[in-house]
Every structure is written in C-alpha cells, then in structure tokens.
Nucleic acid binder design. Structure first.
Lengths: 342, 342
DNA sequence: CTGAAAGCGCTTACAG
DNA sequence: CTGAAAGCGCTTACAG
C-alpha cells in the first residue's frame, strides 16, 4: 500500500472507500433537504477510510464553496485586559453552541492594525466584535458591513450603518469622575494618560478630555506637569506617582486612564507613607475586578458588571439572520463607581 | 449604471476594466517568473475599477489556490498574560514584514480547546506557536506537523517530531523555588494552585508537584489545608491568604502558581500587618514585570527576559523553508530569581 | 440511492 | 502582451 498523501482530500477518501466524492461529503456533513443519508454500510466504509488516512476537511475549499468561514473575531487594542478576556470567553461559549471558532485580534503597533483589518476585509471571518478604540475608519466599517460582515462595534459617537454600535458614554462617566474629585475639594489633580493620548484624534481621547474640560469648567488652570503618559505600564505608573509625591507641590488627587495604573498609584502612595484617600485621592477608569482587592477599594468609572452577553447575542443574531439586520444602538453606559480610594 | 455587487470579484473588475481576470490578478499581485507586468495604461484601468467598486481579494479563493493562508496563530491557556501579550506583539512584528496576519487563540473552557484546535486542523492558519499547557495531544501535534503546519511548541517533555519544542525546564525551576524556601528555614509553606491543578495530568501540574516533591524530599508532611486553588483569581488569592494568616497555625511562606496571586499575597500580608518576608515569605512563578513594582520586590521563577525572538524567528524559518525542517529542541530555561519577598 | 458535474474566487502555466 | 483554461478542495442541485 502506498503512503497516504501528506494532506489527503475527499478524492482520496472516495477512491479508498470506492465511492464518489459526493458520497464522502454527504457522510461527513449529512444531507440537506430531507433526503436520506447514505446507508450504514457506505457510511462505515467512508468513515474507516477517513480514520485510516486521518482526513481533515480543508477550510479553504469548504469556505469557498459555502461562502462562510465559521469563524468570528474579537478586535481590541493591546494589551489584553479583563474585558477582552471576558468577551473572548463569552464569544467562545456562544460560538461553541454553533460550531464556530473564535480568534482574538489584539491591535499592537501601527502595522498590526492594518494586518488585523485585513483579516476582516479579506473575509477570514464571518463577523467581529470591536472593543473601544480600535481606530477603524467609520467608512471602512460601513463598507465591511455592506459586504455582509456581521459587526458589533463599541463606540460612543459612531452612527450604526449596517452594523451595531454599543454606546458606553465614556466621556460623561469620565467627566463625572473628575467632577467627583473637584467636588471633594481637589484642585491639583494629576492625570495618568495613555502614552500619546494627547495626540490621538478627539474621539479616542475621551479620558484626557474629561480631565481637561472639567478642570477648565471649574476655572482650574491646566498644569502640563500633572499629565503623565504612564497609564499602560505598571512600573512606569508607580515611579511617576512616587516622583509626583516627592515634589514640593504634590497633587492631592490622581485620575488614571487605567485601573491598573491607578492601583499602582495607590501602592506608590502607601509605600511612601501617604494615606489614600486622605493624602492622595486615587480614581481609575475601567472597573476591573482587581480594583476591589486593594485597600482602599478603588473608586473608578466603568461598566458595573463584566458581562457582554447582550453584545455577544447580538453578533450571533446577525450571523444567524437570513436577511441583513438594520444597525442598532445598544446602551451599556459606564458609571461612576465611588468606593474608598477617592 | 447598475449597483456594484455586494462582494465584487475579479470577474467584475475584469468586465469593468475590459480585461481578463488573469490581467486583474497580475495587476494586483505582480507577475511571477520575471515576466513583464501589465503596461501602465492597463494597470490604471484595473486599479480604477478596483477603487470604484471597492474590491477586496477573497481569502478563501486565494488561499485555496495558493495553498497557504498567510495567517499564523498563537495558542495559549486563558487568561492572557504579559507573556501572551508579548509573544503576540513579537509575532506581529515578524508577520508584518512578511505580509502575514496574526490571530490569538486563547484556550478557555473545555469546548474552546476543541474549537481552537479545529483552527489548526482545518488549516485556517499556516503555523502556530503553542505556549505551555495548551494540552494538545502529542500525536495530534505530530500529525499536524506531518501535514505541513509550522509548529513551535513550548513543552518540557515532548520530543520534537516535525515540530520544534521549547524547553523551559519549569519543574526544575519550581523545585528550586521550594528548595529556596525550605533552605530559608520554612516548614509550613502554602501553595496557591491553579484551580483543578491537582486533577491535571502530571505533565501540566509541574508547579504543584514541585511543591509536593521537595517538601517530601525534606521529610515535611504535606498539609492539604495549605494548598488553595486560588492562583487564577486575584480577589480569591487575596482572601485566601488573609484567611491563612488569621489561622492559629499560619504558614510562614507562600508559593504561588502565578505571580499575580503572589502579589495579592503580599498585599494581603501587608494589609494585615504581617511583614514580608519576615512574617510571611512570598514567592511567585512566572516573572511578570509587575513583580518588580511591589514592595518588597517579588521573588519568583521564570524566564529572565520577556523575549521570544528566537522562538518567533524559528516559526518564520519554518514557514519560509522550502523543504520540511527537522524538529529541534530549543532551550529557554526558567530560573529562580531571588528578590526581596522571599 | 449514487455519481457526474458545476461552480465558489482565485492564480498561473500556457497558447496565441 | 493578453486571455482562455485548468484546477486548488469542497458542496449540492440534478440526472440517472
């Protein structure tokens, strides 16, 4: 007997089992339209051949013919976070029920953004959820949706256009956090920014703008020395807050673009003998579970529950729909969650 | 003029530009074998048609014909971590140079493991890196490699078999950590385990076994009450260590299966007035950057550098190779990194 | 009940 | 220089 080919096809199986490729496909996938499946004996012969050569269906062939990929994606800005982890998990649960796969597309440097977009554009996947700040051009989103890609997009400003938009109202929530600090009497409020956040287009820098606008509204002069691009690195955040506290004119409060960096701010204060919130009030943004662990518990802004079941259900509804669904706005508003740290 | 079709194909472009589909493809991809590319005028006509209808190549068609997907994957057990984030980032950098895409395949529940494996089996991707503990059957790996999938697998025991194996020697390093604690005089050493770790097959529970075996080797009786399945949840780890410290017979040291939980152990101790390492020595496993931020700095076990360039380069070498490369063992040993917390 | 055949969208060796 | 044609692996309406 000859070696089985490196990647056997249904033709190989058909030859081996003495049937046609149509029969192989019917055995493997069942038959459409209520027709009877192949009889047991044929079935057995085919399945034996499949086992013998270790046949696996080829995605490219199947996908070209079926006009779908049976794959969905989650796109999000790196690094991954409790939200991206949780959303992947919930997507996987829904996908498993439907026999679909899930891939994550973390957006790293500039180059990776384009590569990730290619995955959507060239139809590696049937649908995708885009977490906030993926930075995809709205016209591009509309075009993708127009071509039948199922799309659920987290964005506070975009209008739905063949895709659904999840509104978190982050700007309002972030402003509420700054208001809270100001109303507690703080005037020197530092902000731990995403690196480069001040150069982002305005749609993405909601957090920084919340800080700026609310201070301005209260007639508090902006101090550029209190805006530090350290929110994406825990060691950098810790060091920055420590340095802040050693200044002659330390801030009395810190708002951080990420809960992670806010937590480091709490440590830095505690490690240097500054009480939180008495000596330094600290608020984060994001409401990750970790914020409940530290002492004092972290005041933050974010979704109350780490739950994306509605958004996930909507993606699958789009995938299951026979006719294109109209774009819909879904509200999932962020809230100010006052705990002990500010 | 009629509406452009929902998903235009090269046939549509060809018609529109008054050329053949072959010419469209040549314009889009360039010509092989030193033949001259289509002349400027043809080129322009084709590109205009492409722009007008917003043509995008279809992955399934291209991939079926080219016999490759131009996609690579990273598989890893959820949740994501600084290592998985870093590896994705380094893969993306290498992939960008070659015009490839990168997808992440986090392994969640039992069902998702199978769905993720399907992505490799059915050839959604050309290659993959598997981080430790993906739990893929070695025979399956050999079969995948035998079919030409490029594979670099982090595993301390597997023999290379058409794929490469990265050896971290985690067992040895974990034992060294326990030895370090015992040699420092500790006898009651708690272990923060991955949930279910005691039921994992032996290959995966290297950390737990390190703890058990070294204690046994020193004649220290195992205390089941000191093994807690909380290493994957920060709040759970914090609470468990706090409870441990309130017992009449608290441990004097804690080893944690994750640095994350170890960091929570440090907080829990500090919050409850127990000095680290004097009152409680704490060691983690993994060496994440965060371990350097806390006070005292975390003693841990792991790779010294968060750098996977050798492993990434090897995956791309496999992808670029014309003939199948033999499987290779790569050493990237973990080390005991003694800092201040133990 | 089964098989021959068409065709999904693309690339490419080949003929003109 | 360009186009007609074959074929990648699969599914499925259709003929027998």
């Amino acid at each position: 007997m000859t070696e089985p080919p490196a990647r056997p096809t249904q033709r190989d199986i058909a030859r081996r089992a003495g049937v046609s490729t149509a029969t192989v496909s019917y055995v493997l996938n069942g038959r459409r339209g209520g027709a009877k499946p192949p009889p047991e004996e044929t079935r057995r012969r085919v399945l034996r051949a499949v086992a013998e050569v270790g046949y696996q269906v080829d995605h490219a062939g199947r996908s070209l013919r079926r006009r779908r990929t049976d794959l969905v994606a989650l796109m999000y800005p790196a690094p991954s976070s409790p939200w991206s982890d949780r959303l992947v998990e919930q997507l996987q649960a829904g996908a498993a029920e439907r026999g679909l796969g899930v891939v994550a597309l973390p957006l790293g440097g500039a180059a990776s953004g384009d590569a990730a977009l290619r995955v959507l554009r060239e139809r590696y996947v049937d649908g995708a959820v885009l977490l906030p700040d993926c930075g995809v051009d709205p016209a591009e989103l509309a075009r993708l949706a127009g071509r039948g890609l199922a799309l659920v997009v987290f964005d506070d400003h975009l209008a739905p256009d063949g895709f659904d938009v999840v509104r978190q109202d982050r700007a309002r929530a972030c402003r509420a956090a700054v208001e809270h600090l100001v109303n507690s009497g703080h005037r020197r409020i530092a902000y731990l920014a995403h690196p480069g956040e001040d150069r982002w287009d305005t749609g993405r820098s909601v957090k920084l703008r919340g800080h700026r606008d609310v201070l301005a509204a209260h007639g508090i002069a902006a101090d550029p020395g209190l805006v530090l691009p350290v929110a994406d690195s825990r060691p950098a955040a810790y060091a920055a807050v420590r340095d802040l506290l050693l200044r002659p004119d330390p801030p009395t409060a810190v708002l951080s673009a990420t809960d992670r960096a806010a937590i480091d701010a709490v440590w830095a204060a505690r490690d240097h003998g500054v009480a939180v919130p008495e000596g330094l009030a600290v608020a984060g943004i994001g409401n990750i579970p970790e914020g409940l662990v530290i002492t004092p518990a972290l005041t933050t802004v974010g979704a109350r529950e780490l739950d994306f079941s509605r958004e996930v259900a909507r993606l699958f509804a789009r995938l299951d729909a026979t006719a294109p669904l109209p774009g819909e706005v879904m509200a999932a508003p962020w809230e100010l969650i006052v705990r002990a740290s500010a």
